[in-house]
Amino acid sequence: MPQPTKSWVYYNDRLARYLFISSAVLVSLIIICIIWFVGMQGLSTFREVSFLEFFTSSKWSPDSGQYGALTFIAGSIGTTLIAILLGGPLGLAGAVFLAEIAPPWVRAIMRPATDLFAGIPSVVYGYVGITVIVGFTRKITNSSTGYGMLAAGIVLAIMILPTVISLSEDALRSLPGSYKEASLALGATRWQTIWRVLVPAASPGILTAIILAMARAIGETMAVQMVIGNSPRFPDSLGSPTSTLTSNIVMEMGNTPYGSTWNNGLFMMAFILLVIALIMIILVRTASRKGAVR
């Protein structure tokens, strides 16, 4: 085999290739480092606190040595569920509308509008939550402050709209046109076609949208912290102040010395969030793989 000419052109080409590979490897190393560092710091909580107490007790008073994080876990799950129940159907309706019903000029307005929604910083959502939504939840829950899971759930429902809309719309649009044509040719109405044919066929994509929206909602910090009320009380009603994993980290991180059990407990909460996010990614991969088999 003849040797290639080893000019600088050749070496540049090799060098570029190695640089690209190493950046790709670096991206993998970063996620491993994050899991390792946050995990190590978080798991060292269990040198002082029992596993069972952390996950099943709702008594969080680090001053007297009680480290039960159930309140925060319940708060996070509760707000996320409210957000999905409110934002999911509305977002799906928006997606179906954009993919199947909207005239082109309406679409030309609505697509950039949802992008703008996605671009609004989360503190601004929190700010709107404090100035408007808390007043609204105070009225409908008859509570004294209005801060709590319902306020956080409403803010999150608005925040996840762009995720649900754009991903579900993409899923609906990527269906072969023959599905729709076949259904309409059989005499089905537009709604029957949407509901019985298109939405079921796009369900892996829609499921992905819902899962990613949940991931965004459970990890959202600033907006939630500003409207949840920040009291370490088990959420027994929609309108009473409580806390979530994220909001509690923001509240207490600044007051605790690095390396103390209290501080490690906060890192453990972050680790729980990280693990949930990773599980969601695996779920998304399974959902899209199912879609590919079809």
């Binding site: 946050v38 923001v250 906060l266 969030l273 990280l274 996010a277 991969r285």
Partner: peptide
């Protein structure tokens, strides 16, 4: 593996980045 890492990195909540 690299694709999985990129997707995972995209799903990490920002507060976890902050603590890291």
């Amino acid at each position: 593996l690299i694709r999985l890492s990129t997707e995972s990195l995209a799903s990490v909540p920002s507060i976890v980045f902050g603590l890291f």
